[in-house]
Design a protein around this nucleic acid. Structure first.
Lengths: 215, 215
DNA sequence: AATTCGAGTGAACGTCTGTTCACTGAAACT
DNA sequence: AGTTTCAGTGAACAGACGTTCACTCGAATT
């Protein structure tokens, strides 16, 4: 328990920092950050409670680090979606929807813990954690709105309208991710949820276009 | 502290039961059920910890009671929305949206604690509480889908399609309620959120109609 | 080779936790 | 009038909690 393996001092420190983050994420799978104790985490890692303070000031600080880490996963997903299919010149709206939902489903499958952490602490975490997550999601909405502006081709859209649409899409995607997490391990249910998400996204996009064009 | 006022024995019992529910709801406003202790609740109520057991087996059981109570509020809101405006024969789609969002905003304003409780414990509560909330929301979706069937007039819709649409609408409304709670006390922000919700609902409904008619 | 640095240790503290038990005393029942 | 019922009491418990402090002992610096 005193021997954490080879490596320089900074390497060893980084290694137990990682172990703490992983342990906390694992314990958060069936609880919440606010119901997580320093001693639980320490025991899970295999260090004495006091050693925790060498890495984080508090559970809340740990939570903020987990937010950063989780959104690295989420941004990787967005990058995957955005990269799109380069085979066709201008992809159809339906194909974009299909690709996006597929990518979402795949990424939630891997990194399940990260998405579950965001979904839970978004509503129940310490105030600073909630605020951090809220802010990150707002950034995602902004990015999506610029993507949508580039995609739709119509420049009759207000930035405000784009923001509202993005908000709706992100909300639907977050909800889909939550459903996928609940349905984890039941492939049939997952497939159904993905299918529903595709339908919903098409409804929203088509609706937004038609609604805009007539106002 | 021993004198809880006048009334028969069952009245007095019901009164402290109410006090427990209210105290728990109050404490849940800036924490979560899973981070709520029996002793905290007892102290807030003004009874000794042991007396808690005369009313609930555990915090979890208390949570389930709070779910029931919260959804009474939510169902009252749905009833208000459904009652609609009887002045015009067949209300326009836009007026339905406006009325619905207005009613949502009003009900979230009152009963803020109930909506906040649902929003938080939906993601972070004990498994049984999460499941109970998930089930209640699913019932709401079913009710909405029958309403939509009666409303649209078109019977080209599959029940499955209606369910998917209802799921999207409910998701958007839940997200709106969450935003309203965060923005509580800032009338400007609340107004903006309600306006966004109206736009989003119109997008979804118009989109759903147009999408269906071409498939 | 001598010194500093710092991640991890282990004991100790006061406080809070859930749960047990035997009890009181007034309302309810017979 | 006598008895039962039961919401609420208060002491006691064993365990978990966050945080403090002085410490080790190997790597890093000088």
């Amino acid at each position: 328990m005193v021997d954490v393996g080879p490596g320089s001092r900074v390497e060893r420190k980084e290694r137990t920092r990682r172990a703490i983050l992983d342990a906390a994420l694992r314990l958060c799978e069936d609880s919440s950050l606010v119901a997580l104790s320093l001693r639980q985490v320490a025991k899970e890692v295999g260090i004495v409670p006091t050693a925790f303070y060498r890495h984080f000031d508090s559970i809340e600080a740990l939570g903020l680090a987990l937010v950063d880490e989780s959104f690295v996963s989420l941004r990787a997903m967005l990058r995957d979606i955005r990269r799109g299919d380069p085979s066709t010149g201008t992809p159809s709206l339906a194909s974009i929807v299909d690709r996006s939902v597929d990518t979402l489903q795949e990424h939630v499958g891997q990194h399940r813990a990260h998405f579950q952490f965001i979904a839970r602490e978004r509503a129940a975490g310490p105030p600073s954690v909630r605020e951090a997550i809220r802010h990150e999601i707002e950034l995602c909405e902004r990015e999506l709105s610029t993507d949508l502006a580039r995609l739709s081709g119509t420049d009759a859209w207000t930035t405000e309208d784009l923001r509202v649409l993005s908000n709706l899409v992100v909300t639907a995607m977050v909800a889909t991710a939550e459903q996928l997490i609940v349905a984890a391990g039941r492939p049939g249910a997952e497939k159904q949820i993905a299918e529903n998400a595709r339908t919903q996204l098409r409804m929203v996009l088509v609706g937004a276009l038609n609604w805009r064009s007539r106002s």
